[in-house]
């Protein structure tokens, strides 16, 4: 049983990776569209905004580069794919297969991330050419820990979006809910400004939400800024478990509601 699951996984992965490689030009464009943190960095350092939050230029540039990386490897788009599949009636055959449809999407995301990696690396190298003083090599343990955190961040977002995607069983157009959720993700996750720079009236409650654990926490670890590693990972895990339970529940009642569409 265990063996067959691994077999399914690796086969799915191989086909999806080949599929993603075919669209490498698009994925390169996706990678480029994630450069917003660099522009934000430019605003921060060019106006000396970081002086009052006690982060040096170099540390801030490392932070934003890490934020770029974390974002690259935690981008999730499952709701859009699922919505299309649901509207075109492709979900019906997926539901019959002895494999949860979302495992397919999950593997798709992993394959896409691996395809994306070289492009992200090229962008990072270009960044270092322009900012040679911010070049740093994190220790192996830092890399491993931040990889784990980034993966957890990806899992959190994947599960959040899967929950929203399951709403497709009721509304057919769930992507507008995703757009709504994207707004707090964008502003509160630390992609545009590190969470440590937020005013106190936001800092007091932001750690109760999942958002700072999506980008700020992994990026802080990778860039060597202050972060409470054990606590952070623990909270990430809690969110993952919570989202997973919600997803299972919604999926169960959603599939009961499912009416085949299309074709």
């Amino acid at each position: 049983m265990q063996n067959s699951l691994i077999y399914k996984f690796s086969t799915l992965f191989k086909t999806q990776y080949a599929n993603m490689l075919e669209y490498r030009a698009e994925i390169a464009l996706w990678a480029i569209s994630g450069v917003i943190p660099f522009f934000m960095l430019n605003i921060w350092t060019n106006n000396g905004l970081n002086e009052s939050i006690n982060i040096s230029d170099v540390m801030l540039s490392r932070y934003f580069l890490s934020a770029f990386f974390v974002r690259q490897f935690s981008v999730v788009w499952v709701v859009f794919t699922f919505e299309e599949d649901a509207l075109l009636g492709r979900v019906s055959p997926y539901l019959i297969q002895p494999l949860h449809p979302f495992i397919r999407y999950f593997v798709q995301h992993i394959a896409e991330q691996i395809t994306r990696f070289p492009f992200a690396l090229v962008i990072a190298i270009i960044f270092f050419i322009f900012n040679p003083q911010s070049l740093w090599v994190p220790s192996l343990s830092t890399i491993i820990i931040s990889l784990i955190c980034t993966f957890f961040s990806f899992l959190m977002q994947f599960l959040m979006q899967s929950i929203i995607a399951s709403f497709c069983f009721w509304t057919e157009k769930a992507s507008s809910i995703e757009k709504l959720l994207f707004i707090p993700t964008l502003f509160l996750s630390g992609l545009l400004a590190p969470v440590s720079s937020f005013p106190y009236y936001v800092k007091s409650w932001i750690y109760l939400t999942p958002f700072p654990y999506l980008i700020d926490f992994p990026a802080s670890i990778l860039s060597g800024n202050q972060a409470n590693i054990i606590e952070g990972i623990f909270i990430q895990l809690l969110w993952i478990i919570l989202f997973f339970c919600i997803f299972k529940k919604i999926w169960k009642s959603g599939t009961r509601k499912f009416t085949a569409m299309g074709l």
């Binding site: 605003i43 106006n47 002086e51 009052s52 939050i53 502003f187 936001v202």
Partner: peptide, 14 residues
């Protein structure tokens, strides 16, 4: 609201 919030972060420092 989000972008005004971001602006307010910028302007809290300068």
């Amino acid at each position: 609201i989000g972008s005004v919030f971001l602006l307010s972060i910028f302007f809290s420092n300068t």
